[in-house]
Each structure stands twice: as C-alpha cells, then as structure tokens.
Design a protein around this nucleic acid. Structure first.
Length: 528
RNA sequence: GCCCCCGUAGCUCAAUGGUCAGAGCGUACGGUUUCUACCCGUCAGAUGUGGGUUCGAUUCCUACCGGGGGCACCA
C-alpha cells in the first residue's frame, strides 16, 4: 500500500524530492500520510499542499476515498473497495503474501553464533542465533539468495587452553588463572578421564573437546529451531589448506604488510586506527589473519555480494579492524555489515538470574529452551531490538496465558482455526467463493483489514534495515486487532453473506499470522 | 584516557527528522462475559541535564550525568 502511494506521489512531483509515506497513527490523519509538501522547495507547489493533495487524489483514481492536507502534511484515506481488493490479494497469494523480488537474487551470506567450541552455547548466542535465522527468512522472502553459516573457530589457542584446564582439574598440570572455569569443565574432565590418564596432551584434548562441543552446539541450535546451511571449520578449510599463507603472500605482494618487532603487521587502511598483527613474533598466525582468510573466502572465492555477521557486544572493537582488513582484500567494506547484539539479563520473579544450575557460571541456551520452550524463547528475543540491552522476563515467558506475548499471538492464530472448525460443516466455505467483502463495515473489521495489509510494507522495510523486532511486534498488533473484532462481532451468524465475508477476513488473518510467525520461526499449535 | 550500546509512564518496550511521543503489564473506576481460557471503556502517568542544527528533534551534533560492555603479538 505504501509503495503504491509512494509511486503516485512520484508521478506527481517528479524524481527529485526525497519524501516518505508512513501509516498514520491517528484516525484523524487518515490511513497514511506523506511529508512531501515540506520537502518541495518550489514556491509554486511548496506553499500549496491542498492543491498537491488534489493532484495526488486524481492520480490515484479509485484508490483514495479522500486526500486532504492538514497543515503541510497530506493525509490519505484509502477507499474501502481498495482495502477489499488488498484483502482478496491476501486470500489469493496466501503464503506468498508479503513476498517480493526486490533482492533480485543478490547473494548474501549471514554468519552468526560462530561460538568457540569450548563450552555450551549461551543465552547470548541464542539472541544472535534467532536474529540470524529470522533475518535470513525475511531476506529470502524478499528475493535475496541467502546462505546461513556457522563459523567454527577450531584452530586457535582456546582449544589447547581448554585441554589444559582439563589436565589441571585432573591434577596433571598446575591450574592457572586463564583456565576455563565452571561445572561443565569438570564434567568434561570426568568424561575424558581415560584419555587424561593415558597421557593425552592438551592440544589433542582440546580438539576432542571441540568436537564434543560442536556436536552439542549443533543439537542446541536444532532444538532452538535454527537452521544452518553450513558449518565452516576454520581448521579444515583455512589452516589445513594453507589459505593463511596464501593470503599473507597476496598482502605482501600488494605491499600492505610490514615487518616490525619481529612480527608481521597489516598496515592500516585508515578505517582502523592502527596497524594490526597478522603473524606473531613466534611465527604463529593471529586470529585476525585467519579471519581475513575467511572473509577472502566469503567475498572472493564464494562470491557473496554481501556478508552480514552478527556478533556479541564484546566484539564491537573488532569491527573497524575487520572492515579495514576487508578493504585490504579489495572488497568494499560497505558490503560487510556487522550487527552487534547487546547483553541480555535474565529476570525471574523480578530478580536477575545469574547462575545456571547446570553449568555453574552462565545461562545456557539449552537451559532456557527447556525452561521456557522454543517458541517463547525465540519470540522474546526477536521482539526486542538486538542492539539494545534487554531484560528477558522468564516468568512472563513461561506464563501460559494471553499476558504472555507469544501466547497472545499464537492464540489469535489458533482462534482463527477454531472458527473454521466450527464453520466446517458448511462446505461452501471451503470451495472457491466470492465473499461479499463490502459487508465488512464495522469499525473493528476496518481496523483489522488496515492492520493486515501493512504486512508487505513491513517485510520490505525489514529487508532494508534488518529490524526484525518490528515483525514480532506487528504480530501482536494483528492479534490485538483480531481479538477486538472477535469480541465485538460474531463470525458464525444467520446472514450467509455476512458470515462469508467474516470468514474470509478470519482466513486472511490466519494467513498473515502464519506468514509473520513463520518468518520469525515461531510455530502455531493446532490447539491451545 | 579512548571506543560501542543504553537512558522515554511504576515495570517491560515502541516511535524511517514530522501532525497531540504510542503499546502492553500494573494501578483506580465502570461495563461486558455469547465462535475456548477474554474483551471494552474511562482516569492517572514519560523523552536524564544543558547547549546547538532545523519550518519541525526521542531521533542529528555537542558537553555533562548515570548504567552496561570493550580497548592484546587472546580468540
């Protein structure tokens, strides 16, 4: 709807001005509004929003019932018939409603979670994980070619350190401050006791543990309903294949490196504020070099046009470094998009939960999934903007009532289905029929229709700005508009035409809820 | 010291520079209670502080205040 109005205004004012069209928040300002009259500088039109409104109305034909100017804002009232046409689109397009082709097949890679295989996945990994999964859905719906990847950091020091931590617990080596703590390390030490007693070294122990944790992570991710197209092993794909050396040579040839203090440095490209070490003075490559080799693989070898990475807040200092490095590879750093997820506090009964019973020092994703369930966990993370700190209200998430947002949204969808069940004896309802949508004149019906037709606009906007939380909140607004309708009007009534129209509206509601919850990855139960 | 995020109603959150800053929960009062666990109405209530840019600032800039996180030849 927004796109349609936007194009009409474009026709009237030409290509120059940068205006916008937004849904109006108040009924007195119509259904939609534009600020175009503020933007126009031409005195002939700028001072006359009313005349401009008239022109747009004429251009729109039957789309508008009324277009008028309040001050400099131009407000649009959509004709009921136009809303009804859109409602028919929902019924016709079903799962495809909201889909578009604006992505034009552009190859985008989304990399997320990518946790070190040195412990269980945490609640924080979940936040990025759900976001990545849902964002991929949005982008796919919008016509992008999307691949989801989990980068497995299985080549660094962390594994060896974990191995040492295990040996320390077994008393084979002295314990150190940088060793991994927590109950899960002790569990691991117990499980690997045989290997420890046989004298396995820390690196091998670490590798064994990494395998174990990767397997566990895959399981957690599956439990969470997050799907990956690929798990990319740093060790196998980069180190073993000599990719780090190759990249280093390439950078040498380009004269982008420098030797000083016995180490090899990447010269800053200006995005980052200083040079960074690629090869340490002991001859070992840094994680940064491996990461550059990884991004070389993403952009140059696999030819992704855009790479989105989702990191925790503790990585923010790394953004400039990686962008700088990517620029050194000859890739426009704008094609690397970094989303930072902020910290999550888990709240139960109004108090912060710091400890997990099982792991001892942090809340694992598995614990959360067991406690509150997959759908509530997903929804709660996704309804909040990832770039802000959030409180995860576990008490609310566990509540099985409509106070709980995820239940509220799911229940509305289930309620739609149960209305069909009730009306199921009427065979004509299920055959193709032409509902008399003009019967839908009640205020609650009009509100619901207005809400439903916003969906494609929101998907489009989300594909551009990645603000997935908008869709979660939207599902609540649809549910609310639907419940309002449900309370005020009966669907199953004597008047066959009215009933047919209302069933069509219920059907459309169900479709939109299925679509939006589908994108979020939240299931709709059969019954509640 | 430098960098990132946050600061909006009692609480949890919204608001692509736009019309009177919106919801939900909670509180108070009232009404409904019929397709399943509810819904509706009314009342009260907010942009941390000071400057600046703008026709217009929660939004952009700037200086503070407060909270969280980060500043490795770790990953």
């Amino acid at each position: 709807m927004i796109e349609k109005i936007y194009q009409l205004i474009r026709e009237v004012v030409g290509e120059g001005p940068k205006f916008n069209v937004t849904p109006s928040e108040k009924a007195e300002f119509g259904h939609y509004a534009t600020n175009v009259a503020f933007i126009l500088s031409d005195p002939a039109t700028a001072g006359k929003p009313a005349a401009l409104a008239e022109k747009i109305k004429n251009a729109g034909g039957k789309l508008f019932e009324k277009v008028s100017a309040t001050g400099k804002f131009i407000n649009f009232w959509i004709a009921p018939a136009a809303f009804q046409t859109e409602l028919k689109n929902i019924l016709k397009q079903k799962k495809e409603y909201g889909a578009s082709k604006i992505g034009n097949g552009k190859k985008i890679q989304l990399e997320f979670i990518s946790a070190n295989p040195t412990g269980p996945l945490t609640m924080a990994n979940g936040r990025g994980g759900f976001l990545g999964d849902a964002l991929a859905n949005v982008l796919k719906k919008s016509g992008y070619s999307v691949e989801k990847e989990y980068y497995v950091n299985d080549a660094g020091n962390q594994g060896r350190l974990l191995g040492e931590s295990i040996l320390a617990i077994a008393g084979k080596v002295p314990s150190a401050e940088n060793h991994y703590q927590g109950a899960y390390v002790k569990d691991l030490a117990k499980a690997l006791d045989k290997e420890v007693q046989q004298g396995m070294n820390s690196a091998d122990l670490g590798r064994l543990a990494a395998k174990f944790f990767l397997q566990a992570a895959k399981q957690s991710v599956q439990q969470a309903g997050i799907e990956f197209d690929q798990f990319f092993s740093e060790y196998e794909n980069l180190h073993q294949k000599g990719k780090l050396k190759q990249l280093l040579e390439l950078l040498n040839v380009k004269s982008l490196t420098e030797e000083k203090e016995g180490a090899v440095w990447l010269k800053t490209s200006g995005i980052d504020d200083k040079d960074r070490v690629l090869v340490k003075s002991d001859g070992q490559p840094t994680y940064f070099l491996a990461d550059l080799a990884y991004h070389y693989d993403k952009f140059i070898k696999r030819k992704f046009e855009e790479a989105i990475v989702i990191w925790g807040a503790d990585h923010h200092g790394y953004i400039a470094r990686l962008k700088s490095g990517v620029a050194a590879l000859g890739v426009d750093p704008k094609n690397l998009k970094v989303i930072i997820t902020q910290f999550v506090r888990l709240i139960e009964d109004g108090k912060e939960v710091k400890m997990s019973k099982r792991s001892g020092d942090f809340v694992t994703l598995d614990d959360l999934l067991v406690e509150v369930g997959k759908d509530a966990t997903r929804f709660f993370f996704l309804m909040h903007n990832p770039e802000t700190h959030m409180d995860f209200d576990m008490t609310l998430a566990k509540e099985k009532s409509q106070k709980n947002p995820v239940y509220y949204a799911q229940y509305a969808a289930v309620r739609c289905a149960s209305i069909f069940a009730k009306s199921g004896k009427l065979a004509w309802v299920w055959r193709p029929f032409t509902p008399k949508l003009e019967k839908l004149t009640a205020e609650s019906e009009a509100n619901l229709i207005q809400e439903l037709v916003k969906y494609p606009d929101l998907v489009l906007q989300t594909a551009k700005d990645y603000q997935v939380s908008r869709l979660a909140r939207y599902s609540l607004e649809v549910a609310r508009a639907f419940n309002n309708f449900y309370e005020k009007e009966r669907v199953i009534v004597e008047d066959k035409k009215l009933m047919g129209a209302r069933l069509a509206l219920v059907k459309a509601t169900r479709i939109v809820l299925e679509n939006v919850l589908g994108v979020l990855g939240v299931a709709i139960p059969k019954e509640m």
